[in-house]
């Protein structure tokens, strides 16, 4: 009956997280029938776009066997710097150009991480911890520390663009913004890289065993370098979307989210030791975190308990597989 399922289906993290998401939705529907309406879902989707893009990047780093805590700083740096740049140089620029600039900024900052990690061999956590401070400090010292609310008009136009909008029969307004397409684009592109290119397979291989990768001739340095540049570019994209949709370039936003994003990715089954992580799992992890952040109240838990809930989810989501692995190891003797 379950022949079409992967053999390890029932023990996978993805299944566990999907189960929790479904369970949450069922309870939420029972306590508030309006929960599963297009209005709520489109609200959740909007909230998931920026975190989702960042999480895809964080997943890639974990798969390669590293960890990156600087991507939020990159996102806010790229967003703010490109906003400032275009306000000064060409306020009327079309949004794709502004977006491209932010992505390039992100990629450049990612390249700095990549340089220290891939070419100087420094530990990833330490490097990105350092660059988190550097990027943020540089932004706030030399570029600006004021919130900018009169962004280039094209950015506002972008945030007004919707794929679908409407009003439900109950009179609730909903809309799915263009930005959702960006998330979709990132997912498809990352899926393609990871599943269909040798580069993507090399990222998994390096995560599985760096030494073996070197021995069979994978160019470990350039592959790692690519990972950090790509993550930087994704962060730049996430940052500019965050700024556009929020209609404000706030240099203090996003930073502080990095550990929650990593938590979402790990909930989705990526392992800190590298080599393991899927897009499905990552998106499920993001879904779980976003639902808890936005809809906890629906199932009767006051929002003041949000932090406790997420913390417990992380402990359960990582604790159950860890404990199972520990038991299996001790049984094997």
């Amino acid at each position: 009956m379950t022949a079409w399922l992967p053999k390890d289906f029932w023990t996978r993290n993805e299944t566990l997280v999907a189960g929790v998401v479904v369970l949450f939705c069922i309870i939420a529907m029972l306590s508030d029938p309006r929960f599963l309406t297009i209005t709520t879902v489109s609200d959740l989707l909007r909230a998931a776009i920026v975190i989702g893009i960042l999480a895809v990047g964080a997943m890639l780093v974990l798969v390669s066997g590293g960890i990156d805590v600087s991507f939020t700083a990159i996102a806010v740096f790229a967003m703010y710097a490109s906003s400032v740049l275009f306000l000064a140089v060409w306020p009327g620029a079309p949004w794709p150009l502004i977006f491209a600039a932010s992505i390039v900024f992100g990629a450049l900052l990612g390249a700095i991480n990549g340089f220290f990690i891939a070419f100087m061999g420094l530990p990833t956590l330490i490097v990105t911890l350092g660059t988190l401070s550097v990027f943020r400090g540089f932004l706030l010292t030399f570029i600006g520390s004021q919130r900018i609310s009169d962004l280039p008009p094209a950015m506002r136009d972008f945030s007004r663009g919707v794929l679908a909008r409407g009003t439900t029969e109950a009179g609730n307004f909903y809309s799915i913004p263009w930005a959702a397409l960006a998330l979709l684009f990132v997912i498809v592109m990352t899926w393609f890289i990871l599943r269909k290119t040798m580069l993507g397979r090399s990222i998994y291989a390096i995560g599985g065993s760096v030494e073996s990768a070197r021995r069979i001739g994978i160019n470990v340095r350039w592959t790692q370098f690519f990972v950090y540049v790509y993550v930087g570019a994704l962060a730049g994209l996430a940052g500019i979307i965050h700024g556009s949709v929020g209609r404000m370039a706030d240099p203090f936003s996003l930073v502080g989210l990095e550990l929650s994003v990593i938590a979402a990715v790990v909930l989705g089954g990526a392992r800190l030791i590298g080599g393991y992580g899927t897009l499905t799992g990552t998106l499920l992890g993001v879904a779980l975190i976003v639902i808890v952040q936005n809809s906890l109240i629906v199932i009767g838990i006051p929002t003041t308990w949000q932090s406790v809930t997420i913390g417990l989810l992380i402990l359960l989501g990582t604790g159950v597989p860890a404990y199972r692995a520990k038991r299996a190891a001790s049984r094997a003797g």
């Binding site: 800190l272 997420i310 913390g311 402990l315 990582t318 692995a325």
Partner: peptide
């Protein structure tokens, strides 16, 4: 206990527990 008995990686165990402690303080 999370690290020793349940075998969680310390970075995740304390990330999660840190949120729980902060969460209790908020609550």
């Amino acid at each position: 206990a999370l690290v020793a008995f349940f075998g969680l990686p310390p970075i995740l165990a304390t990330l999660g527990s840190g949120l729980v402690f902060t969460g209790f303080a908020i609550a």
